[in-house]
Every structure is written in structure tokens, then in C-alpha cells.
Design a protein around this nucleic acid. Structure first.
Lengths: 195, 195
DNA sequence: AGTAAGTCGAACAGGGGTGTTCAAGTTGTT
DNA sequence: AACAACTTGAACACCCCTGTTCGACTTACT
């Protein structure tokens, strides 16, 4: 049994394996929301038993993967300056992290089916706040339309991102085109019917 | 064994059951892409064995459900006049059939996981053509932006519709608001950066 | 070099889904 | 009324997934 957890530190290879497993979980779960544990273990290049040695259940694994992809997202978002012109900030946000957001969104979807309701919302709340704030600020400043509620605008962004990720995965959309297409679409949608 | 199929017509109650099963399959599959056969049978108020009497496999059932929801969609779209101003036509299309399209889209997603690849595309091709044509005509006439490919615009529409349906199902969006929100968003997105 | 930590495959039990069979009962049709 | 069509639950075999145990093996650490 691995995971003494108390007293001495874990062995180096164990830590590496945990990392490999989490990375595999994120990619597998974002491709297929109900990927099996065997599938993830295999993708990580690790035996199924080893995986269960580090995560007591599939649920715990999915939660850990969600936490990981969200914290990765946090790190990227932290490095971004979103305080300037909302439109420019939104463009920066999209072009620099659309793929990450889409991936996180996919894992989030997987988590919704595997975790107790509310838990997902709880973990997702803080990262989502940043996007939320940007959109609300844009509305307050007059950069974005106010005839539609902010919640809806946020929802549209998420679904367009998710859709773009699907299109890329299916080969219907060139990965290089995605950021521009998304920005152009979202900005126009957020502008609304101006003069 | 039901389904003599040859010679004499099926009994009335059998036909009704097939209908009930298909209706249940559409609603179940649009709520949950991997709904079980038992689940669908129960929703239809029918024994599981009866269902297997009418559909040889889950795959056949899903395919039949997809065909049904698509043909329902066809019927609605047929009654619409989409020949006028593309913007007005798109608004009509959305307000009159966004829910149906979203439901069809959900079943389509379920079918993608249960049917051989290509088969879904094949069935979906004709109904999708109508929306496709409308958007392309809008671009040709100058009503919609041309700096983004028509395929992408179609994709955006589908994903926004799908997202709206999810939001409604999750209680995040009032069903009555949906058509207006969607139209306002899509029209703005399709207009692009005009003067 | 020795020891604890870690990995691995095989194999188990339990649960749920898919299809199938069967025997008994119900119901539409003529 | 009588027959065939239809429905039904129980029970079965099969497969895949989840978790767990076991014993043997390899590897990191001192």
C-alpha cells in the first residue's frame, strides 16, 4: 500500500506517477466525459492498481483532475492584465486561454456526472468569477450591451468556447483559426445592435 | 414474437407502443445521452421485453429515435417561409423552433455515441441543409458578415441553441426568455463589425 | 547493501447494462 | 368465440466497470 502520507515524504516515483495520472485524467476526461479508470491508467502508463493506490475511487480521481485543471487555469489567468478596455481584455483572454478554458469546461462537465451536485459549482466558483467580473465591468462601462443579462453573456461565451473545442477535435475547425473566430464572434455578439 | 411485418398489418396496440417508445426515447435521450433501455422502456410505460420486440438493439432504437426527431423537425421547418430578408427569416426560425432544434441536437449527440460514425452525419445532412442555406444566402446578400466562414456561423448557432437548452433545463434560464436572448445574440454575432 | 516504499498482473466479488428465452397472461381482430 | 398477435416478469448469460486483495517483483532512499 502506497501513501503513508504521514511522517516521511512520498518517494519520487510515486509523486511522478500521481502527476502522470492527473495529466492523463485531464486529457481523457476532456475527450470523453465518462472515461473509465482503466482507460486513464493506461493513458498514464500505469497499472490500474497503482492508480487506486493513489486515489481511493473514481470520484476522488475526477475531483482531483478538476482541481488540477482549474488551478492550471488560475495560474494562466493570474498572469493576464484584464483591467484595461473590456473589449481588448476579452480578446486577450480568449486568444491566450481559450483552449485551456475549453478543456477545463470539458472536465467540469465530466465532474458534474461523477461528483455530488454542488461540489462542482463550489470548485468552479472562484475561477469563473474572473470572467464574470470582466463581462459585468464591460457592461457597467458601456463596452458591452446591457439589453441581455450578464449571466447569459457568460453562458454564450462558455458554449461557444466549448463548441470551438469540439469542432477542433472533430477536425471541422483549424486550431489556428479558432482564437480569431471566437473573438470576432463573441465581440460582435456582446456589442449588440449599436448605431 | 411481435413484428410479423409480412402480409397482415400490425395490431393497433403494437403500433401505439412503438410510438410511445419512440417518444420516450427522444425525451430520455435528449435529457441523458446514455439513457439505458430499461429507462426508456419505463418512461414509455412498457416492459423492457416489449421494447426489444420492436427494436432489435439499443442501437436500432437510438437510430429510430434520431430519425423521428429529425423528421419532426423537417415538418416544422417545411411550414416556415425562409425566403425573405435573411435576418427576419433567422429570427423566425429561432423563435419558432429553437427548442425542437435543441432537442434534435441533443438526440444527435446521443446518437453519435451509439451509432457507427458517418451514419449520424448522413441522417442529419438534409435537415441541416436548410439552416445552412439560409446562412449562406444571408452572406451572399450581404445581410450577414463574410469575414467568418459559413460553417463556423452554423456551428455557433448550434452551440448557442444547445447551450440555451441546457440552461433552461438547469433552471438558469427562463424558457420564455430564451428565443429573444438567442435571436439577439446570434443576429449581433452574424452582423459583425458594421459601421 | 538493505529495507521500506512502490508497482504490477491476476483474480475476486458486486453491480449494472445488454440481449435472449420461456411460459403465462392479456387483448385486438374476424 | 376463437385464434393469433401482443405484452409481461422472471431468469439467464455475457460483458464491462468499480474496488479490493494477494503475492511477487522492482526501485528509491540511507
Amino acid at each position: 500500500m502506497p501513501r503513508p502520507a504521514a511522517g516521511s515524504a512520498r518517494r519520487a516515483d510515486a509523486r511522478q506517477n500521481v502527476d502522470k495520472i492527473l495529466a492523463a485524467a485531464v486529457t481523457c476526461l476532456s475527450r470523453n466525459a465518462d472515461a473509465s479508470v482503466s482507460e486513464i491508467a493506461q493513458a498514464a502508463g500505469v497499472g490500474r492498481v497503482t492508480l487506486y493506490g493513489h486515489f481511493p475511487s473514481r470520484e476522488a480521481l475526477v475531483e482531483a483532475a478538476l482541481i488540477r485543471v482549474l488551478s492550471e487555469g488560475e495560474k494562466v489567468l493570474e498572469g493576464l492584465d484584464l483591467t484595461g478596455d473590456p473589449r481588448a481584455a476579452l480578446t486577450v483572454l480568449i486568444t491566450s486561454s481559450w483552449l485551456l478554458i475549453a478543456q477545463a469546461s470539458a472536465v467540469l462537465e465530466a465532474a458534474q456526472a461523477a461528483l455530488p451536485p454542488g461540489r462542482v459549482q463550489e470548485l468552479h466558483a472562484k475561477p469563473a468569477q474572473r470572467v464574470d467580473d470582466l463581462i459585468r465591468r464591460g457592461q457597467a462601462v458601456g463596452a458591452f450591451r446591457t439589453d441581455l443579462p450578464a449571466d447569459w453573456l457568460v453562458s454564450v461565451l462558455h458554449h461557444v468556447l466549448h463548441g470551438a473545442a469540439l469542432d477542433v477535435a472533430a477536425g471541422r475547425l483549424d486550431r489556428a483559426d479558432a482564437p480569431h473566430f471566437i473573438s470576432a464572434t463573441i465581440l460582435a455578439a456582446y456589442l449588440g445592435s449599436r448605431t
